[in-house]
C-alpha cells in the first residue's frame, strides 16, 4: 500500500500507473494555463488588494489582514461564490492603482504606510461600492471561519478572547435519566 521509492526503485504497478497518467496528462494538456500564486488575482493585483486590506485591518500587536490569509480567502472566493464580483475587482483594482499613481507617482503597493492610508481613504470616497465590497470581504476573511483560507489558526478569534476550537466537554449523561414523552 505504501509506496517506498527511495533510490528511484519502482514497483511495476507504480511504473505503469504513473506512466499512464503522465501520458494522458501530456496529451490533454493543462486547461487553465494559470500562472502565479493565485487562482484569480495576478501578483500585481494581489499587491494592490493587499495594501487596501491591510489598511482596513492594520497590524496593531495583532496581525494585519494579509498576515492571516485574507488575500487567500478573497482569491479563492472570486473563483467560487464571488465569481459575480470578478469584474468589480478587476476594474476596482486597476482604478485604485491608477489613482495612486496619479497622486503619488507610484502603485499602491509601493507606497509607504502613511501614503497608503491616504490613498485608501481616497479610494473609499472615489469608488465607494468597490471599497465596500473589499471591506466586507476583508472582514469575512479576517473574522470568518479559517476553513475558507483566511483567519489562519483563528487568530482573530483568539484576539477577541473567543478560543477556537472551544474547549468543551462531551454531553455526558445517563441515558436512563430524564422525562420521556
Amino acid at each position: 500500500m505504501q509506496s517506498s521509492t527511495k533510490g528511484g526503485a519502482l514497483t511495476r504497478r507504480q511504473f505503469v500507473a504513473a506512466g499512464a497518467t503522465g501520458s494522458v496528462a501530456a496529451v490533454i494538456g493543462c486547461k487553465s494555463g494559470r500562472q502565479g500564486n493565485w487562482e484569480f488575482l495576478s501578483d500585481e493585483q494581489a499587491g494592490t488588494l493587499g495594501a487596501i486590506c491591510d489598511q482596513i485591518i492594520p497590524a496593531d500587536g495583532f496581525p494585519n489582514a494579509t498576515q492571516v490569509g485574507v488575500l487567500n480567502y478573497i482569491d479563492k472566493q472570486l473563483v467560487r461564490p464571488y465569481r459575480r464580483h470578478q469584474d468589480a475587482y478587476r476594474d476596482g483594482l486597476q482604478k485604485s492603482d491608477a489613482s495612486s499613481r496619479k497622486r503619488f507617482g507610484k502603485g499602491l503597493a509601493e507606497l509607504a504606510l502613511a501614503q497608503q492610508l491616504e490613498a485608501v481613504t481616497a479610494i473609499s470616497s472615489e469608488q465607494p461600492e468597490f471599497f465596500e465590497l473589499v471591506r466586507s470581504h476583508t472582514f469575512q476573511g479576517y473574522y470568518g471561519s479559517p476553513r475558507h483560507g483566511g483567519n489562519r489558526d483563528a487568530v482573530s478569534w483568539k484576539m477577541l478572547g473567543v478560543p477556537e476550537p472551544p474547549v468543551r466537554g462531551r454531553a455526558q449523561y445517563d441515558l436512563g435519566k430524564g422525562p420521556q414523552s
Binding site: Q55, R135, L160
Partner: peptide, 29 residues
C-alpha cells in the same frame, strides 16, 4: 460569533482601520 459583531459596534465607531479593530476587541465580549 465575531462575524456578527462587525456592524454592532457603538455609534461613531469607524467602519474600518485601527479604531474598528480595537473596538472589536473592546466590545465583542
Amino acid at each position: 460569533l465575531p462575524i456578527h459583531t462587525l456592524d454592532r459596534l457603538p455609534n461613531g465607531t469607524p467602519t474600518w482601520g485601527p479604531a474598528h479593530k480595537k473596538a472589536m476587541r473592546d466590545w465583542h465580549r
